[in-house]
Design a protein around this nucleic acid. Structure first.
Lengths: 239, 239
DNA sequence: CGGGACTTTGATATTTCTCAAACAATGTGG
DNA sequence: CCACATTGTTTGAGAAATATCAAAGTCCCG
């Protein structure tokens, strides 16, 4: 184990995620590895896709967190979804572009471009499952905001997020990185940062969630999942 | 104008919508017309796609309204989006299926299957724009529920819906069919039917919305749109 | 005409927001 | 390495939006 490998444990998030979503050949893996080798960085707080900007090719996030958001006229923000390592962003099959949406780097990011799927059943299948997962997450987001209370929204979102991170090997047992502020969480879950704070404290009091510094952990996933009737998407997707 | 043509003014919703989303050749139109000729019906209240059901090919809705929904353990329902004439349902490019979601016929429906896009730039482009629009509507739905109050949610949703109907020629001036109950609206907008009722009354009092029987109209779209900073998706999409 | 499904209304409860301030952590320039 | 500025968290008190419960009214279908 070389030092650099230890320092960058997840620079293969794209290939790791795809290999868990579809059956890849050695050739697929080679293509992905090549793409991952050609990385570029984006500093925190930079916007990746501005409204009405030209849209670029598909890119994958290798490390860091980003989010897709929309700003309302009155300055309010709605975070539509978080972009986590292994996720692909860019036109999803369709070239049509009408985003009134922006992608914002929450932390410093490492990214790479995504190899074309042409001629590879595995890659095409993996991309397709990735898109299906993304749609699933959008639907879950609607359900959370539409029909759950603050306590349930937090619980459900934490479970989903930890599952997504686990899929790319970024969850250590029940613990995972948590680089977002309570205000971002509020903007994602349709709440106020004050209320997020109080609700997180309630979850902590109930022994379900521990957030400290830039880490979170879910000591009792079982009970948490029961509480909000959480159904992991993974079962239907991973292969 | 034959009597049947008058009685069924919108049995060409698919080709109409696609021709507004992309440039179609005569050949494309022929294919679509052929598909539309081979219709089938679905009675109101029937489920089209059950959870974990086998997924079928892509189908288009030619007349009637349906909705995609999810039922929570406690019996609550979240309507994720409404399916309107001209909309395509089924696996969107990706074959992966993980829907924990159901499509429900709200009214009696007329449907047809969707011709393969193979070899047609126009059709492929049209389907792609349709998918992009759908994603846009999901994002709009999140923004509505997450960051708007009841009054704004209703207003925004009514504007979007009337635009979607207008795209397939189903809006008469500012008036359009409105076959859904206030409870469905509540389940879509993350509200209570009681509150939807009161809010609709407020919109009516303000001269912005008239709902009566199974029709709705928006007498002052201008003011309504201003009020909620509504941005039609159409501008970026229709060609 | 009767009955079920929708709508409307009222009174009250609950959740969440708003405002304001104190506190803690984090980073930055000197 | 300190002092300060900035950003994020925590707390309290009161206000506003929305939910809940219950009942009456209305409409439409058969």
């Amino acid at each position: 184990m070389t030092p650099t490998a230890v320092a960058n444990p997840n620079r293969a998030a794209l290939s790791l995620r795809l290999s868990r979503l579809a059956a890849l050949t050695d050739d697929d893996r080679r293509k992905l590895a090549a793409a991952e080798r050609d990385q570029f960085r984006v500093p925190a707080r930079r916007e990746l896709v501005g409204e009405d900007n030209e849209y670029w090719d598909r890119r994958a996030l290798l490390s860091g967190w980003a989010c897709e958001q929309r700003i309302l006229r009155n300055g309010q923000r709605q975070i539509l979804n978080f972009v986590l390592p292994g996720d692909v962003i860019g036109p999803g099959g369709h070239r049509a572009r009408l985003a009134t949406t922006t992608i914002l780097a929450i932390t410093d990011l490492t990214m790479c471009s995504v190899p074309d799927g042409e001629g590879s059943v595995g890659l095409v299948d993996g991309y397709a499952r990735g898109m299906a997962l993304k749609e699933h997450h959008l639907q879950a987001q609607i359900t959370r905001i539409g029909r759950m209370n603050a306590y349930e929204r937090l619980a459900d979102w934490l479970l989903e997020t930890s599952d997504r991170l686990a899929l790319v090997g970024l969850a250590n047992g029940d613990q995972f990185a948590f680089p977002i502020t309570q205000e971002m969480l509020a903007d994602a879950l349709g709440l106020t940062s004050v209320h997020v704070n109080r609700t997180l404290k309630a979850l902590h009091r109930d022994g379900l969630v521990i957030v400290s510094g830039k880490k979170a952990s879910l000591p009792d996933r079982e009970r948490l999942a029961m509480l909000v009737d959480y159904r992991p998407a993974g079962a239907n997707v991973t292969c």
